[in-house]
Design a protein around this nucleic acid. Structure first.
Length: 761
DNA sequence: CAAAAGTAGGTTTTT
DNA sequence: CCTACTTTTG
């Protein structure tokens, strides 16, 4: 049973919303999961909707699990039949059923980023693309971006005009062909192929449209184009009178959109009302998580972004502790100080699990880890080197994957010589060549007499390898996954193999322990899945786990993670560390749009805190082995009025000095006694950015910038004496000159208008 | 074909 | 700084 009275009026309205599209703009900590779960319970209990026709989509398995558990608690019954899962697992589920329509078998393999990377390296080699000139990264991210936008290899080729795009088109096509040959999909394919499936196979779409009457999507602000199209397809159920109902309920917060780099398209949420006509919009603005003091600071920061949906979070918990800011001398002092601070509070009765240390990049975790180990402080590290990326895990998984999908050449390449059995790269190359020539798969080449003849010296070894794999297949048919893994590890003497690689026994033991964790996961899986357990299902589950999914909440330990990793979580006390220019915001983010995304990330981080929020930075920090000095982050120095922070620590004096001097760089003439200089700067330069109106920031008129333009506009084609033809992609007004960003064949360069000898073509 | 040594390049965030 | 790839040597 559930109680509507426990909800506030807008929450109730959202839960009780009848039919048709619904957008819930849910600010941080406003109880969105509560609303979704109550809505599910309401639909099932009060409106007689079958759980079978409800689909709830999240981004992480952890969120999905939590949502299902909470819905079940409200309903007091199991919600079997209801789909509560991530985009990716949903797509896998759909594709396993219909893969044949797309030229895959249902046993297709899922490639993770490492698989993709090695595949890409191979392709570049084969296509004679200089890896010095282009890093595989360039191609990988370009292809990923295209897939996220539902652009196929052929479509990409049609609009590829410059050299680099043509290269990408060529690589994209080859890459896709190889994945298809290997019966494999990468993460982006899971989404894109499902979209293609729904575009082309009416039978598949009809099946799911008949089934899903109510659809909920969590974290809607982070959806990309492929996900958007997927949702659009799925939300086409017709009622018994044949009318579309679009019972689509999306929940999100544009201020928490932090995955643009991964293709998330913020316009999905900003224009929801245009896409789904007659959509109802409900705002949840009461925050139940944080104190007002924390929200004040967070609101102040986010208010510096443009083009937001208008809303303002407020809390019923008035007051609270001041938000603290500490500038340390060095990154080491920062780590020591933070760890000490946590220990002090634990000594005074807090739990370790009350604390989270958040940072911009994973690399920053190291110092905290070191300090915590030394201080004997229990911690949980989220992210970093993923469990499933470890060599020993990937090796064992490769063996398993081959058993399910023998066409997957990448896995065979990986372990054909693991452990060493005399099948080296040259042998594999010859086999691959034979396979390519005859049009069979690598494994088939290994199985055939004539295939082995292409590498006569190793023929015997190859035959033995094939026999080994076949014996595993037989073993698999009769035994559990748990037993299978043990069997493989024993048969190939894996321990001896890694012991020979590792410097010391500790490392080898570590690795063996990791393998037994993998076995544990297999046991878990088999217990959960019961009679439905299958190796391919286990493998896809394993491929789709996120770092955050692996965290067990029971252990009393401090959490260490990136700001991204913290989304959707909350902690009584939060430390955001490394709040320095070039660290946070990242030095990689330069353009206004990118800075805004960093600012949203800052907002997300701050709003994780329930009771206490501490922001720290260091004057000096070691980055890539070099000592660097950075100013405190603009998110503190320029976004938050001084009086809202409690400034602590020994660096107080020098900080105050910096605080003042940091106001100068932009040399903006103030029009009022005090105006946040960064805001003023942005207003002055607003005419040069495409940003829309200023949301809830009160706009005061400033003297417009000097009318003299740079002589070019964005989009113009220009000629440069050295770099040749290029396209103007950006124009920024500097203090006395215009900075022009020009794209020359994919390489973008910044230059000052008065110095660069640019001519318009 | 395997192991060791050397070197170059890249390090934002991740399902 | 660290890893992952390349080159060299056995």
């Amino acid at each position: 049973m559930f109680d509507l009275n426990s909800l506030n009026p807008p929450q109730q309205e959202a839960v009780l919303h009848d039919k048709g599209p619904l957008l819930i703009l849910a600010g941080a900590g406003s109880g969105k999961t509560r609303v979704i779960t109550h809505r599910i319970a309401y639909l099932v209990e009060e409106r007689g909707v079958s759980p079978y026709s409800i689909l709830a989509i999240t981004f992480t398995n952890k969120a999905a699990k939590e949502m299902r558990e909470r819905a079940e608690r409200l309903l007091g019954s199991a919600t079997s039949g209801m789909w509560v899962m991530t985009f990716h697992s949903m797509c896998v589920r759909i594709l396993r059923r219909y893969a044949v329509h797309l030229g895959y078998t249902q046993d297709f393999t899922i490639y993770d980023t490492d698989d993709v990377k090695s595949q890409m390296r191979k392709i570049m080699k084969d296509l004679n693309i200089n890896s010095k000139q282009f890093s595989p990264r360039v191609f990988i991210s370009a292809i990923s971006k295209a897939k996220n936008e539902c652009i196929s290899a052929d479509e990409f080729a049609k609009t590829a005009y410059d050299y680099i795009d043509k290269q990408i088109a060529r690589v994209y096509k080859e890459y896709q062909k190889r994945l298809q040959d290997n019966n494999a999909m990468d993460f982006d394919d899971l989404l894109l192929n499902t979209v293609i499936l729904f575009d082309t196979v009416g039978e598949a779409l009809n099946y799911y449209n008949d089934r899903f009457q109510y659809i909920m999507v969590d974290e809607y602000q982070d959806t990309n184009t492929a996900q958007f199209r997927l949702i659009k397809h799925l939300a086409n159920h017709r009622n018994e009178r044949g009318e579309y109902e679009h019972n689509l309920c999306v929940v999100g917060d544009d201020d928490q959109s932090i995955y643009k780099f991964r293709g998330a398209d913020i316009t999905n949420i900003l224009s929801f009302e245009n896409t789904f006509i007659n959509a109802k919009v409900i705002k949840l603005e009461q925050n139940y998580r944080s104190t007002q003091k924390i929200l004040d600071v967070a609101n102040e920061v986010i208010s510096h972004n443009y083009g937001r949906k208008d809303k303002k979070l407020w809390s019923a918990q008035d007051g609270g502790a001041d938000v603290t800011f500490i500038q340390y001398g060095t990154d080491i002092e920062e780590a020591t100080g933070v760890v000490r601070e946590i220990q002090k509070k634990v000594d005074n009765g807090a739990l370790y699990s009350d604390f989270a240390v958040l940072y911009r990049t994973n690399a920053q975790s190291r110092l905290f880890e070191e300090r915590m180990i030394r201080m004997n402080m229990p911690y949980k590290l989220v992210g970093g080197v993923n469990f499933y990326q470890r060599r020993e895990i990937k090796d064992i998984l490769a063996y398993l994957k081959i058993l399910v999908n023998p066409r997957d050449a990448a896995q065979i390449m990986r372990i054909a010589n693991v452990p060493k059995r005399g099948i080296g790269d040259t042998t594999l190359d010859k086999l691959a060549e034979y396979a390519d020539y005859t049009g069979c798969s690598l494994y088939e080449a290994m199985c055939s007499e004539s295939g082995r003849a292409s590498a006569p010296r190793a023929a015997k070894k190859i035959e033995e390898f094939v026999e080994l794999i076949e014996s595993f297949k037989e073993y698999k048919a009769e035994n559990t996954i748990e037993e299978l893994i043990g069997h493989i590890v024993a048969e190939i003497d894996y321990k001896d193999y890694i012991a020979a690689i590792d410097e010391d026994d500790d490392k080898t033991n570590d690795r063996m322990e990791n393998i037994s964790s993998l076995v544990d996961k297999a046991v878990d899986y088999e217990e959960n899945a019961g009679a439905d357990a299958s190796l391919e299902d286990f493998l896809s589950e394993v491929s789709l786990v996120a770092d955050i999914d692996m965290v067990d909440d029971d252990k009393d330990a401090v959490m260490l993670m990136t700001l991204h990793g913290a989304k959707g979580l909350e902690f009584p006390c939060v430390f955001i560390c490394g709040m320095e220019e070039n660290v946070f915001p990242s030095g990689m983010s330069q353009e206004p749009g990118e800075i805004e995304e960093e600012r949203r990330l800052c907002y997300v981080g701050m709003t994780r805190a329930k009771k206490e929020l501490t922001l720290t930075c260091a004057k000096q920090r070691m980055i890539h082995g070099m000592t660097t000095a950075n100013n405190a982050s603009r998110f503190i120095m320029k976004d938050v009025p001084r009086h809202m922070l409690h400034i602590a620590g020994h660096a107080h004096e020098s900080f105050m000095h910096n605080y003042k001097s940091s106001l100068d760089p932009y040399k903006i003439t103030r029009t009022s006694p005090y105006e946040n200089p960064y805001t003023a700067y942005k207003k002055a330069s607003a005419s040069y950015s495409s940003a829309s109106s200023a949301g809830d920031v009160p706009v005061r008129e400033l003297t417009p910038a000097a009318p003299t333009g740079p002589g070019f506009e964005v989009g113009d084609m220009v000629n440069h004496p050295r770099y040749g033809a290029g396209k103007v992609t950006r124009i920024d007004k500097g203090s006395k000159d215009f900075e022009i960003t020009v794209d020359f064949d994919g390489i973008s360069r910044k230059m000052l208008a008065s110095f660069a000898k640019l001519t318009k073509i």
